[in-house]
Amino acid sequence: MLNSIRLNQYCHKQCNALAFEYATGQLRGLKKTFFSLLLEHSAHAQQHVSFWQEQLIALNASTPELAPQTRTWQAIAHSTQQARTLRPGQVSPKYWLAPAATGALAASIIMALILLPLTPAPAPKADYFAVLSDAQGGALVTATSFGESKPGQGNHLLIDWQTLADTSPPQPAEGNLQLWAKSKRDQQVRSIAVLDRTQMQEDSTLVLSPAQWRLVTDAHSLIITLEEAGGSAIGEPSERILARGPCIRLKEALL
């Protein structure tokens, strides 16, 4: 429950901007996959996306029409030849055709329905998620891990710097930022990676080794510190903590 609350808190702060980026097609790659996952479970996120979709569609008033090719309908007709049956969880249209029955639908189901047009093409599922905040409590970084989507391609950790409009992620004049995992098992802090300059850009993706992935899966929280060049010399984080936040296993958070 706590984790779900954290997701909603995150959404409250970030969803409008992300929804706009989603509706305008700005969200790409793993970040889009993450937001799609959030959409499946967050009514707030769904409402924000619906708002932008309804508003921005007016831009298409200037879109020239173009008659489709003949083969298109033939292909559609061929693909839809098989009779369709209702899947579990799907709602018959008679419910929303009958106003009285519409009210009987649970709110959670209703919110799920609007998402279907938003569902992206198959993509790797997010596994772990962390919002790292600075000392003032402002969200600075989100880190989202993705399990191995295709054999051999490895796991990924998407690092998204939640910067203000006109600022860039912190770029230490000397040294590096280092990402740490605090173990939920023994409370020790271990290094996941030393972030190089390119990984301090707006969005960056770390390809995780099995060992790094393990640290993420065992993480109670993630921490980013400022370290000397090359990272911490003793394998422990410095006291210059830039951001920290709890690491949430989405499978559990979204139950």
Binding site: R185, R214, R249
Partner: peptide, 13 residues
């Protein structure tokens, strides 16, 4: 001694 090893690791999930 506290020993973390793959036989008792709980983080393989």
């Amino acid at each position: 001694a506290t020993v973390l090893h793959d036989g008792n690791a709980e983080d393989w999930q």
